[in-house]
Design a binder for these strands. Structure first.
Lengths: 122, 122
DNA sequence: CGGTGGTTTCGACATGCGTCGAGGTTGACA
DNA sequence: TGTCAACCTCGACGCATGTCGAAACCACCG
């Protein structure tokens, strides 16, 4: 039991931040970064992530997420777990409800990684 | 047969660009965007993408990509196809060699999508 | 014209992943 | 304490995906 139950990686552990247009991504961190991109690589997870990231008050209840989709609550829970283990969101139980909150650290790193020079518009 | 064979999407067709922290991603475009993220959601593809994006001269030969990995050339070709169909890279054959080039448009959109406010550091 | 090297496609296989139903856990409330 | 609602875990089911070898394709060069 050398690892906590749910939180797999902390966003701050990713030792890579330079835009990939400038610097090649080292093989050692490509796995961790790819896990985050893969977590966003599903239409439902991407919508979940955007609902969490744009939530008023910085957090949103699972009970507000589930009815936005036609899939079962079980599957929503599974997708949220993927986002959680990728380090993109954080969950907290309060009373009977579970609230999800974005983790801006990793999002910023991914955004920086994809950054490109200003278009050399003629 | 309403879709062309190989080129799935053109980056400019993605009608979404506002940061997901501000605006929820519409369900209609989540599939296209998720396809791009999914393409980056593999360690090898992420390294391939970074090698292409950071290539000197703006392009790189497949013959320079393949020896950087231990997997077969067949598999490298497959991964490049995924990046191509996601709209992240472009390929051009010149003489006997094929050169890959990044497509900054979609990369910029993905980066903008993940953009977050400056950290409210105390 | 045939051969050679670079690249992609094809067909096959094992693994991974999205989905669900059933059941478990947690907390609220009477 | 019993019940109920919200959420998660477990186990299972197909489909998608990463991987490879063989073969096809393309461009150059004897």
């Amino acid at each position: 039991m050398s690892k906590p139950p749910t939180v797999a990686i902390s966003a701050e552990d990713v030792p890579c931040c330079a835009p990939m247009a400038y610097e090649r991504i080292p093989a050692e961190v490509s796995g961790t970064l790819a896990q985050a991109f893969k977590a966003l690589g599903d239409p439902i997870r991407l919508q979940l992530m955007s609902m969490i990231a744009s939530a008023e008050g910085g957090e949103i209840c699972v009970c507000d997420l589930t009815p936005a989709f036609t899939i079962s609550g079980t599957t929503v829970s599974h997708h949220l777990k993927v986002l959680r283990e990728a380090g993109l969101v954080d969950a907290e139980r309060r009373a009977s409800w579970v609230y999800y909150r974005p983790r801006p650290g990793l999002m910023r790193q991914l955004s920086a990684l994809l950054a490109v020079d200003e278009p050399a518009r003629a």
